[in-house]
Write a protein that binds this DNA or RNA. Structure first.
Length: 482
DNA sequence: ATAGGGTTAG
């Protein structure tokens, strides 16, 4: 049996109640200033029990926290609190004067920026990373690649990636995901064109090529990588490529039982048009979860099987799975595409009244689309006006599209006026209204609108400067220099 | 001794 030391007691904690009991022991044994013990305590308190305020109060009693303690606390905040809170803890750390941020400090901060798409804050932190000389760490580099990729600053991501002296699977995944999300697989291909060619038995394409290059560089693809790869395939929608990846994944030693892997595999097959294979994988699952149901329902919807999508949704509920907001987006979308007005309205109603979900702007957009397409323009308009939150521009756009479809000039003008206010630089609404006028032979209105559109439509994106520091591999955006 | 990064459904 293990001795009843405090660290051992900590690792045995199964509930917050246990943790409080060990905390009593810590105070009793006078271990409140023991950095090792308190670090374990805070780590456990935040990661296992998500109790940042408790962790914070214990931290505050430590007189001279060391770097381990600060880093653990910052990670806790980054996981469970807002970016503003994380940065405020980081500033407290810097102002304490006892410790210097190191390569363990920055990854969690960058992750917090990444999840809030806080580019400016991320760039400021990038500046600090360079200042503290931690930019060559693989964790820091990967986090930066992830941050810039997520913020659609793919060139920054790439620059960091190129400057990294060590890269691992995480760095590669972050870079690939960045390119995938930017929809820029062509650029990815260009990068890998400078490396030796490999035979691919048929269809060369970008994501698979990246994948093969990784293998040739002895980077073993893990579950993360193949999920990214399959996500890329889903977006490209190529059946050939999906088949290739499917057979690779199925024959590999990768763990198909990891929930993300199978979910991505089903989603890829469903999106690429291989519903047969998707169905087989789906039905063979020992326990089907919400995500896989959604992938299947969406797959059916994409391929025009709206009625089947609805019945699969009903089966999901019968199997005891509770739909969430995403599931309702999927099914409302399916109803909208298949023109299943009655079913859609019933789902929308049950979403609110049975499942107590608050419809988002996306749900309203689906409903507006559904009602609008079937000619119930006024009902759609009333629904939009009844929204408590500000409607998404997409919802107005969908309704304007419906006005075009049903040649309703009066309502079209009313809605376009709202859209011009929300999105004055989006050409779509001008084009739609102009089409409505054209269909009614109101050419004067058309030409007026077109000239207005040209006037508003051309807007140059602001430029950006970069500066380079003494070391050529080190760079950061100009704004980050303080 | 104790601290850090990447993946799925709209």
């Amino acid at each position: 049996m293990k001795p009843l030391s405090i660290p051992n007691l900590l690792s045995a904690c199964k509930s917050i109640r246990n943790l409080e009991q060990v905390h009593t022991q810590i105070i009793h044994k006078g271990a409140e200033q023991d950095h090792f013990v308190i670090t374990r305590f805070i780590s456990l308190c935040t990661s296992l029990f998500s109790n940042i305020s408790y962790a914070s109060s214990v931290f505050d009693r430590v007189l001279q926290p060391n770097i381990y303690l600060w880093n653990t606390l910052i990670k806790g905040y980054c996981k469970h609190s807002s970016l503003a809170q994380c940065i405020s803890v980081f500033l407290r750390m810097k102002q304490s004067g006892n410790v210097v941020p190191d390569e363990y400090t920055f990854p969690s901060l960058l992750k917090a920026c990444s999840s809030e798409l806080a580019l400016k804050e991320g760039q400021a932190i990038h500046g600090l990373i360079v200042r503290y000389g931690t930019e060559h760490d693989v964790f820091v580099g990967s986090s930066l690649v992830d941050l810039y990729g997520k913020c659609r600053e793919i060139e920054f991501a790439r620059k960091v990636f190129d400057g990294m002296c060590v890269r691992n699977e995480v760095s590669w995944t972050s870079m690939i995901v960045g390119y995938v999300n930017a929809g820029d697989l062509i650029e990815a291909k260009k990068l890998f064109d400078v490396m030796p060619k490999r035979n691919m038995n048929g269809q060369p394409n970008e994501a698979v090529e990246i994948f093969l290059k990784m293998q040739s560089m002895n980077i073993k693809p893990d579950e993360f990588i193949v999920v990214s790869l399959m996500s890329a395939c889903s977006q490209i929608g190529s059946l050939e490529q999906a088949k290739w990846v499917d057979s690779y994944v199925s024959q590999s030693s990768l763990d198909l039982h990891q929930v993300h892997v199978l979910a991505a595999l089903i989603d890829m097959n469903a999106k690429c048009g291989n519903m047969g294979r998707a169905t087989m994988l789906f039905e063979k699952m020992p326990k089907r979860d919400l995500v896989c149901f959604c992938s299947m329902i969406q797959g059916l919807s994409i391929h025009g099987h709206g009625v089947q999508a609805v019945s699969l949704f009903r089966r999901m509920i019968n199997e005891g799975i509770t739909p969430d907001d995403v599931a309702f987006t999927v099914i409302l979308n399916a109803c909208s595409h298949a023109g299943l007005v009655e079913e859609g309205c019933r789902f929308f109603d049950s979403m609110i009244n049975e499942y107590s979900l608050v419809p988002s702007t996306y749900h309203y957009a689906c409903m507006v689309d559904l009602l609008g397409r079937s000619g119930k323009l006024r009902a759609a308009y009333e629904l939009l006006k009844s929204m408590l939150v500000e409607p998404h521009a997409g919802a107005w756009g969908a309704l304007l599209g419906a006005c075009k479809l049903h040649n309703d000039i009066e309502l079209g003008e009313e809605i376009a006026a709202q859209l011009f206010e929300i999105e004055p630089h989006n050409a779509c609404s001008y084009v739609l209204l102009s089409d409505i006028y054209a269909a009614a032979d109101r050419w004067l209105d058309v030409s007026f609108l077109r000239s207005q559109m040209i006037e508003m439509g051309v807007k140059k994106k602001p430029g950006r400067s970069l500066i380079y520091s003494a070391k050529p591999s080190v760079w950061y955006p100009y704004e980050s220099v303080q």
